[in-house]
């Protein structure tokens, strides 16, 4: 059943696959994001409570939700590499960590920029913002651990273990931060998750989320190719690649 997948365990095949997929992802993500952002900024109706400032959610929500999904994808890759000893899964996880960190940073900055007009301060210790901040720390830890090893293969395995430890901890951290938040502030009004959003507001958001997914895919492919090259520097196919690209 999974036989068709086996050739892709070979670095060369995966590299070629990534190269063929990359243009599709890039073009699709750029067009989707352009449509989504123009729609969000220029055409979506205004929110009667928050005014135009609500347009920030069109970046904030995709970045925040997908920052978590990227971590889950990394954890899946780490698990795959542990269970099946698939080195390429480590390369994929390593490729995704900086993307996750950037998404978390975007979610934090846009959260703060949205909080200033709404709450009156740049930062509140809101449960979501706090757990997003902790998620950023987890990402930074994984990246730092990855950079600390000279040997890429060892780095991938060590970072994989840390990722899995983190994935066990994330629900606990999330739960504890939420509990801590209600303890100290009473129920905060989370204005970011409006239960009922009108369709003409929701549609551009969905388009943007799709655009972000495609963009994450494209950047992952770019970084995945780098990781594969770095791990296979001595292979003949990399030599051919160099001969072809750097004359």
């Amino acid at each position: 059943m999974w036989k068709w997948l086996h050739p892709y365990a070979k670095p060369e095949r995966s590299y070629q696959l990534a190269s063929t997929l990359l243009p599709w992802f890039s073009v699709l993500s750029i067009t989707t994001l352009l449509i989504g952002i123009i729609w969000a900024l220029g055409f979506a109706p205004v929110d009667y409570q928050q005014g135009e400032s609500y347009r920030i959610i069109y970046v904030h929500v995709p970045a925040a939700t997908l920052s978590m999904s990227v971590y889950m994808a990394m954890a899946t890759a780490a698990l795959v590499s542990m269970v099946w000893q698939l080195k390429l899964a480590d390369a994929a996880a390593a490729a995704m960590a900086p993307i996750g960190a950037v998404l978390t940073t975007i979610a934090l900055i846009t959260g703060a920029a949205w909080g200033k007009p709404m709450w009156g301060t740049w930062w509140v210790w809101d449960a979501r913002l706090t757990s997003e901040l902790i998620l950023l720390f987890l990402y930074l830890g994984i990246i730092a651990l990855h950079n600390a090893f000279d040997d890429k293969v060892l780095a991938g395995r060590a970072a994989g273990i840390l990722t899995l430890v983190g994935v066990v901890n994330i629900p606990i951290i999330k739960y504890s931060v939420e509990w801590w938040n209600t303890l100290h502030q009473g129920a905060t009004i989370s204005k970011l998750d409006k239960p009922s959003m009108s369709t003409d507001m929701l549609l551009p958001l969905l388009v943007n989320i799709l655009g972000f997914v495609l963009m994450i895919g494209a950047i992952t492919l770019i970084r995945f190719r780098n990781e594969v090259i770095a791990r296979n520097a001595m292979r003949p196919w990399v030599k051919e690649l160099i001969a072809k690209e750097l004359k």
Binding site: I37, S53, I56, V59, H60, A63, T105, I109, T110, W114
Partner: peptide
Amino acid sequence: MGGYAFFVWLSYGCAFFLIISL
């Protein structure tokens, strides 16, 4: 942006800058 120009453009600008630089 209905008076929220700074915040909205700050968010979009930062996001754009970070993603492009990555």
